[in-house]
């Protein structure tokens, strides 16, 4: 089978295989941060950057360190540690050199450490046997896909807050989950259009 074109993979990760809407990963920050468009955008941008970098980084760690030494079964703990260290490093750098960005991202940046979409992307990268360039494309694509989903939902939620009269029990996460389900249903129609593995 021909290797998948990284560009194809990039678009597939955004639309047909959106990590949030088809794999339902990263739902926790998705639910809690989608109340307002501004914070959704900040969280989304941080996810794009960290997901792209850690997927590529973990690809290197996996194929250059773990595989040659026969330690693939340690990939969970190693990936998690790499992600945590990377996020920490990024936070320090952003705080020191881009204070404006640091303040606008606020607590979203460190929260990414425990965003399961990030870890998920690294695991998919291994399961689907992506090479470095593919991993990078997949990482960036998944990040943008996640951002797209959270921006879409936060726009809908903002509109709902202004206009809709929801029953008390449906407010907040409940209605968000229902809308997410509907959105996911729409995205489901794309599934299988593009081969990702």
């Amino acid at each position: 089978m021909d290797p998948i074109n990284p560009l194809t993979l990039f678009f597939a990760a955004i639309f047909t295989n959106n990590i949030l809407l088809t794999n339902f990963l990263g739902l926790c920050p998705f639910l809690s941060m989608s109340g307002r468009k501004k914070s959704a955008l900040g969280m989304g941008a941080a996810v794009v950057f960290v997901m792209a970098s850690t997927t590529a980084l973990n690809n290197l760690v996996h194929y250059k360190v773990l595989v040659p030494l026969g330690l693939e079964h340690f990939r969970f703990i190693v990936f998690i540690v790499v992600i945590a260290a990377f996020v920490q490093l990024v936070e320090m750098t952003v705080e020191r050199f881009f204070p404006a960005l640091y303040f606008s991202l606020g607590i979203f940046l460190p929260l990414i450490t425990v965003n399961c979409a990030i870890f998920g992307a690294s695991l998919f990268m291994v399961i689907r046997k992506y090479d470095f360039v593919q991993s990078l494309a997949y990482g960036v694509g998944s990040g943008i896909g996640w951002m797209l989903a959270i921006i879409a939902i936060s726009s809908i939620r903002e509109k709902l807050q202004k206009t809709a009269k929801l029953p008390k029990g449906l407010e907040g996460p409940a209605i968000t989950l229902i809308i997410t389900g509907l959105l996911a249903l729409a995205f489901l129609a794309f599934s299988g259009m593009i081969r990702v593995q």
Binding site: L71, A85, Q88, M92
Partner: peptide
């Protein structure tokens, strides 16, 4: 195999810790 695994995993942790320690020293130097 056991010893190698432990050493490698600890090594990765140590490299990352070292990296962060350097970052703390040089990047977070205000």
């Amino acid at each position: 195999q056991f010893i190698v695994s432990i050493l490698i995993i600890s090594g990765i942790g140590a490299v990352l810790a070292l990296l962060l320690e350097f970052a703390d020293r040089f990047i977070a130097d205000y």
